[in-house]
Simulated assay, not measured.
Amino acid sequence: MKVIEKTPHKKTLNDGYHKFCFNWWRLLGMIVLFPLVYFWSKKYVKDFFTFTQTYQRSGLMTIDATTFDFNSFAVYQQDVIAKKLDQFNFSFSTEEIAAMKTATILNQHQDPISILYLQHSNSNKWVIGLHGWTENKYLGLRQVFYFYQQGYNVLTFDSVAHGLSGGNYTGIGYLNAQNLSDVIQWLQANYHPQEIGLIGNSMGAACLTKYLIDEGYQNPLVHWAVSDCGFSNLLVQFRYVMQYRYQHPWWLISFGLTKKFKNEIGFKLRKYNLLKQAKRLKDFPMLIFHGDHDDFVPYFMSKEFFTRKVKYERPGQSQLLSLLNVNHVEAISKGHQVYIAAIKAFLIQQERK
């Protein structure tokens, strides 16, 4: 799926956050050109909403001439090959594959959440992996693989309106933050974990951060989180993608965007702003990865969030690791050695507490 038409300048990727917020001249320009703004926005907002909601949830999928069921372990196996993670031995054994369990639980609205988990016989430490937009719980396994090798039990689940979980529309993680809370409650009730860590990429990274800000920071069992190329403000993220997808200034084509999502899904995009309550995480350690060539969720997203977060916390509690010449969700593959070394050091730091 081609997300954007033209990669922005590197300066925009690194320091462009405020380029996608209103200032006096953008407001004035929108007012002066309002007939054009209205005409273009009517077209592009509708198309963009459809774009955010159109992706595979079930059926057969083909990668490199191999066809398989999208909701099966085969999607993980093919993804490992496609991302060249097989060179790092990102393969579960036959015994581990056989030991994987799936289950369906219900969220607070009685909608299904499809989960996948794998346990060690002598561990009560857990890591929950949150997949990205258009993916599923099997693709979430790539994020938790290393942790399983280190002795953690691991769990992934299909996000709202992804895979076999319920929901007609994705809120790009906004709606899924409550599902994460429901999964953690289920885990606590059934397996009595000693500690829980979270890891997510892209949409999954933003989702876990929203959960932490909403309530997770108060849960003593949730000890740490790893965020890989997550966005910090969904409205700004959408404006960025629209500008480079449609090759028009965002303020000319996004009038009515928040209203469209409110009418169709029921939440206001402005509420999905992780910067406003970053102070709540002042005592919560996070390891944040982001590639400086990420042209889908630009580096400035993590940079802005990290800058807000560290204002309130003690030095060294959280880290932002920028990976040079790495694009979206490529930290685990192209930046693999640095990625694994940083996670290993981060876990040692948490164990010393």
Rank of each mutant, 00 (worst) to 15 (best):
213 I>F: 04
256 G>H: 06
257 L>F: 00
218 Q>L: 13
249 P>R: 12
257 L>Q: 01
236 V>F: 00
245 R>L: 13
236 V>H: 01
237 Q>D: 13
242 M>H: 00
229 C>A: 10
242 M>S: 00
214 D>G: 06
254 S>W: 09
231 F>D: 10
227 S>T: 12
245 R>A: 14
213 I>N: 03
222 V>H: 03
247 Q>M: 10
244 Y>E: 06
218 Q>E: 12
218 Q>C: 06
239 R>F: 14
256 G>P: 05
210 K>E: 13
237 Q>G: 14
250 W>V: 13
217 Y>K: 03
220 P>M: 10
244 Y>A: 07
233 N>Y: 12
230 G>M: 11
224 W>G: 04
209 T>Q: 07
243 Q>E: 15
236 V>C: 02
224 W>V: 05
218 Q>T: 12
210 K>C: 06
242 M>K: 00
259 K>W: 04
249 P>C: 06
240 Y>F: 15
227 S>E: 14
226 V>S: 03
231 F>Y: 15
245 R>M: 13
251 W>T: 10
234 L>E: 06
245 R>T: 11
230 G>S: 10
209 T>P: 00
218 Q>D: 09
259 K>D: 12
232 S>V: 08
238 F>C: 03
258 T>A: 14
238 F>W: 03
216 G>D: 00
222 V>T: 02
242 M>V: 00
233 N>Q: 08
248 H>A: 02
233 N>A: 07
247 Q>V: 08
217 Y>E: 07
241 V>C: 07
252 L>M: 14
253 I>M: 11
226 V>I: 15
246 Y>D: 12
236 V>T: 07
209 T>S: 05
208 L>I: 11
257 L>I: 00
237 Q>I: 10
226 V>C: 10
209 T>C: 05
241 V>S: 06
247 Q>L: 15
218 Q>F: 00
260 K>E: 15
206 A>P: 06
250 W>Y: 12
260 K>W: 02
233 N>S: 10
